[in-house]
Write a protein that binds this DNA or RNA. Structure first.
Lengths: 228, 228
DNA sequence: CTACGTCGGATTGTATACAATGTTGCACGA
DNA sequence: TCGTGCAACATTGTATACAATCCGACGTAG
């Protein structure tokens, strides 16, 4: 799999490039994406930029406000909960399927993902590590041979990255390095029950490590209301 | 809820209008959607049409082939299975949540859906009945207060309509009038277990009433290969 | 000093013109 | 007669020009 930057002269490539930047926290929630500015940076016309922004809008990564422009999305607390609800429905059962279908090559690919993630962390590139951590989840759906679910998971993972940017509680705690390793072992052992259970608790851990309590909820929603 | 035709001068409205036509089987899988033609019909420029077609492409309702144009999607057998796999993961648990949260008004809305569906059937508008039948599923996700999942279900239901158009086995069998009625009763009784179980078996019934066997699979995939 | 209305700049929404690509039909040759 | 190559046509891809809308600054009145 090629994890380098995509070619950015086409609408889809530009969208992927922007999505990656958002996913890696190089673009913060609420950041404005001016059509002229983006177009000049990538050397393409506004037509291409608009198509890319529309695509990202469908993926809920950018918020398209009529006559006002495109902004990196700021998921609400409610939306954050919904995203993890959806992930909790999709991913555990999919991990079970992956465990039952994984080939040796699949497991090797998962190990490569982890290695890349650790390398990025050691290099101080936390954003890239987060992106690779998300790609791990998508890869599991691909191993399960479920492209439709994989597409959903890909979107939910990207949105989760925005949620983490907004509501992550403890910054020093590294992003669960154990969970993915345990998951690989369960999958390699073809243990569907364990893989499903591990994925479920992994997602629950992720959710509970977020600051979605009612107190901060009102505070943030107030800020959102004032910020318009 | 307003189930009439949306305004078709904006990209989103046009996309919804086209999606409804696809969902109601007024546009068949494989039909070409020429930009000029669609634009002339709705009295808008190609710019708007292109945006609408892009949106439908993201929802997997149209297939956008570069330099060749937009065509109503023709889901493969594999994709058909994947769509129902995803629905099986999302909808039963969501039906349970809906049963636990439904208000009297929600249940009344569901009854109105059924009534409209029967009225459409009696009027001989089978396509519209199918559309309303799908809207019933989306409504359940809305009652469960899960907009994110509802958006996924909406897409999956629309794709299911294409799958039905391609692979429906017995034409005379009416689209499961009992299942939805039983579901309402379970939801009205706040019986989450029953609602989840009914939804699961309802989806299974739907899947098994399709012609996705390996025999027809090769035949259809051959036709697809030849049709390019 | 504050509140309101108006004007100017900037940004997006839409339409259209031009370029690039794919298709189709015909002519030519084997 | 069948297959191939070319050429004209039709359709989509992209860029740009113009229109519509929004935001902010300035000035004035209370």
């Amino acid at each position: 799999m090629d994890l380098t930057s995509p070619k950015e002269t086409t609408a889809a490539g530009l969208a992927e490039s922007l999505a990656q930047a958002i996913h890696e926290h190089r673009l913060s929630p609420g950041a404005k994406l001016s059509e002229d500015e983006v177009g000049e940076i990538f050397g393409v016309s506004r037509t291409i930029v608009r198509a890319a922004l529309q695509q990202l809008s469908h993926e809920r990564l950018v918020d398209l406000k009529r006559n006002r422009g495109a902004f990196v999305a700021q998921p609400s607390i409610r939306e954050a909960r919904e995203v993890f609800e959806a992930r909790a429905l999709l991913e555990p059962r999919t991990a079970r399927s992956a465990a039952l279908r994984a080939t040796a090559e699949d497991i090797a690919a998962l190990h490569r993902h982890i290695a890349e993630e650790h390398a990025a962390l050691d290099a101080g590139k936390a954003g890239r590590a987060l992106f690779l951590s998300g790609a791990f989840h998508v890869e599991i759906a691909r191993i399960a041979d479920q492209d439709t679910i994989a597409a959903f998971v890909e979107q939910l993972v990207a949105r989760s990255s925005l949620i983490i940017a907004l509501y992550w509680r403890r910054r020093q705690a590294l992003c669960e390095s154990h969970a993915h390793h345990d998951l690989i072992q369960a999958i390699a052992a073809r243990n569907g029950d364990l893989a499903e259970e591990l994925m479920k608790s992994h997602l629950l851990d992720l959710l509970t490590s977020l600051d979605l309590g009612p107190n901060t909820a009102v505070a943030r929603s107030l800020r959102e209301a004032l910020a318009g």
